[in-house]
């Protein structure tokens, strides 16, 4: 048997995740077509110029407000949501998992910690709801989305901003603040796409965010057999993984570094704090780098859609399996990992 990572998301969460992802990607594409205008001029033109981009940004911004409020309300009024609060709080295991990840990379640990969760081994109940990275994502993205929504609405409402700040220049500081704040999330999302797209066992996309937990078995072998390893040695590596993960990893690093450098020069809008004509260095390398970062986001969008296609295919397979009494042998697998045959055997 192999002890694959277990689904943890409910159906509502998987749908919310996909909608939030789509909304945030559109906000990134439109927002950074403005902020990194020197480098992403083509994107701005493609989306209908200044008026088109700002219109899409505002529509998706309102969509973000709706999604965020929906999620906060759901977590507060449902018992499932309230019971999750304690599970997202940082714990000692998270620090241990971070340290063990470094040890794992250095060859001083044989496995990743359960709190690293990706192919952590152990049974579903022993694996925490969120990995230490997952908790970081929840915390940083929650703070970011809240501040971005508030500052975005203030920028939108000129009268609201004018009531607070008496000069236009001061009001425009909010545009700068808004754009710079989003850079953290932009970099985080690039890492998020790499982390969940390039795991060798789940490549090209980890399905746990797309296939609800109710549709994923919690074990794949004899009930009597206690899992003592992750079983990863029984999976075959996808032929394209080494090439694709190397290229995509490089693109992720270049993308993160480029938007970080770009954010230092392009403060919020094409106008830096100290006036510089053109809004920053029109460096060809920076242009290529920031555009590569946008490609990374584009790949994330495609993988999100692919994850949903996999969910539909898995649903159809479950329906087919329900009709005849005998199961036909298959795993909720992505293309990257090929599960072992005895998974099927043990079920018979």
């Amino acid at each position: 048997m192999s002890n694959l990572d277990h689904g943890k998301f409910t159906r509502v969460t998987t749908l919310f995740h996909s909608l939030l992802g789509l909304d945030v990607f559109l906000l990134f594409f439109t927002g950074y077509a403005i902020m990194f205008n020197d480098e992403l001029w083509w994107m701005l033109t493609l989306m209908g110029g200044a008026s088109g981009v700002t219109a899409i940004h505002r529509i998706t911004g309102i969509g973000l407000v709706a999604l965020v409020i929906f999620w906060i309300t759901l977590q507060l009024i449902s018992s499932t949501g309230r019971s999750n609060f304690s599970k997202i709080l940082p714990a000692k295991g998270d620090i241990d998992a971070f340290i063990q990840d470094i040890q794992f990379v250095l060859g001083r640990a044989d496995e990743r910690h359960p709190s690293a969760r990706q192919f952590a081994g152990y049974k579903a109940d022993e694996v925490p709801l969120l990995s230490y990275i997952g908790k970081g994502v929840v915390f940083i993205f929650s703070i970011e989305l809240t501040l971005l929504a508030i500052s975005g609405l203030l920028i939108w409402s000129k009268t609201g901003l004018a009531a607070m700040f008496q000069t236009k220049a001061a009001a425009m500081a909010f545009v700068t603040f808004h754009g710079l704040l989003g850079v953290i999330m932009l970099m985080g999302v690039m890492f998020h796409i790499f982390e969940h797209g390039m795991h060798p066992a789940f490549y090209p996309v980890e399905t746990k965010a797309f296939i609800p937990r109710s549709m994923v078995p919690e074990h794949h072998g004899d009930d009597d057999e206690e899992p003592d390893t992750t079983g990863i040695e029984r999976l075959s590596l996808s032929p394209s993984w080494r090439t694709v993960s190397t290229i995509f990893g490089a693109m992720t690093v270049i993308g993160i570094v480029s938007v970080l450098i770009g954010s230092i020069f392009d403060e919020g809008y094409p106008v830096p704090r100290e006036l510089a004509i053109g809004g920053g260095p029109a460096s060809i390398l920076l242009t290529i780098g920031i555009n590569l970062g946008m490609v990374v986001l584009g790949v994330g969008l495609v993988l999100s859609m692919y994850g949903n296609v996999l969910r539909i295919r898995w649903e159809q397979q479950l329906e087919r399996d329900e009709r005849p009494a005998a199961a036909d042998g298959g795993e909720p697998q992505t293309d990257g990992g090929q599960p072992e045959a005895d998974d099927a055997e043990s079920e018979h």
């Binding site: 990840d101 990379v105 790499f194 990863i232 029984r234 999976l235 590596l237 993984w241």
Partner: peptide, 16 residues
């Protein structure tokens, strides 16, 4: 990113 990249390389080495 680098930690995960390196960890993924090690995991890949454990696979067939």
């Amino acid at each position: 990113v680098f930690i995960h990249w390196a960890a993924f390389q090690r995991l890949a080495d454990q696979m067939r």
